[in-house]
């Protein structure tokens, strides 16, 4: 297969396109179905075990998807929405590689059921920066070489960026505490500390808040 053909129909591209189409057409009906289920009897109706329609709000965009109740948020983000920036390593809550924000609170996507997220806002690494517009924490990670294999990096960035959201002037201990759940097998911690503290310093020098999104509603 030629490069052009590959680019034309990549798996990720296909998933993204399919997801976008579905999102625009099914959002309303899914809301209606969910509402009907709640109102249908006395109290809430059990959902599943088969796939049920569900709306997941990710990076400011509602995505209408069909999920089994057993699907984790990490699986929904990666496998259903194609947002593979969120990494799954241990799948047991032990490494924090899958850290995303649920209403801005750092949360483990692998130990959260997608169906349990309800109307809350999910922010993933794709929601805070991209290759053209890096989040300041991402830019500082690049500058300080705060990654080696990079697999823990999205979760690490989400933890550090969340810290700066709630504490614009963190101490070294604050940074250590904020990433105390994020395991890095490559041992990049000192550079992660330096990168995060520099973002706080730069921000103070410019006396403007850290940009937390690249234009989307993160």
């Amino acid at each position: 297969m030629s490069d052009i053909e590959k680019r034309a129909i990549t798996r990720r591209g296909f998933l993204k396109a399919a997801g976008a189409t579905a999102a625009s057409t099914v959002v309303e009906s899914a809301h209606a179905i969910t509402k009907d289920l709640r109102d249908s009897a006395n109290g809430p109706a059990p959902l599943g075990p088969g796939a049920v329609p569900f709306v997941l709000h990710v990076n400011g965009v509602p995505h209408s998807i069909s999920i089994e109740p057993r699907m984790t948020l990490a699986e929904a983000l990666r496998d259903t929405l194609g947002l593979t920036g969120t990494k799954v390593v241990c799948d047991r809550g032990s490494c924090s590689a899958c850290t995303v924000w649920v209403d801005k609170v750092p949360t483990l996507a692998c130990m959260t059921l997608a169906i349990d997220v309800g109307m809350r806002n999910i922010t993933t690494i794709e929601g805070i920066g991209n290759a053209d517009h890096l989040h300041p924490v991402q830019a500082a990670f690049v500058k300080h070489d705060a990654l080696q294999c990079g697999f823990c990096t999205p979760g690490m960035v989400m933890s550090c960026a969340a810290l700066l959201e709630r504490n614009p002037n963190p101490s070294l201990d604050d940074v250590k505490h904020a990433i105390s759940g994020n395991l890095c097998r490559c041992g990049t911690y000192p550079k992660v500390f330096a990168a995060t503290l520099e973002v706080a310093q730069d921000r103070k020098a410019l006396s403007r808040p850290v940009s937390t999104s690249n234009g989307k509603d993160a």
């Binding site: 109290g43 809430p44 059990p46 959902l47 599943g48 075990p49 057993r70 959260t112 349990d116 309800g118």
Partner: peptide, 28 residues
């Protein structure tokens, strides 16, 4: 596979707590 029932009151939750079901809080 399991069914999932999203409760908003204690009474609703007690309605569904029976053999085979289990309450889920943080879920860790």
């Amino acid at each position: 596979r399991f069914t999932f029932v999203d409760c908003t009151t204690v009474a609703e939750a007690l309605d569904h707590l029976k053999q085979g079901s289990v309450a889920k809080a943080g879920g860790i």
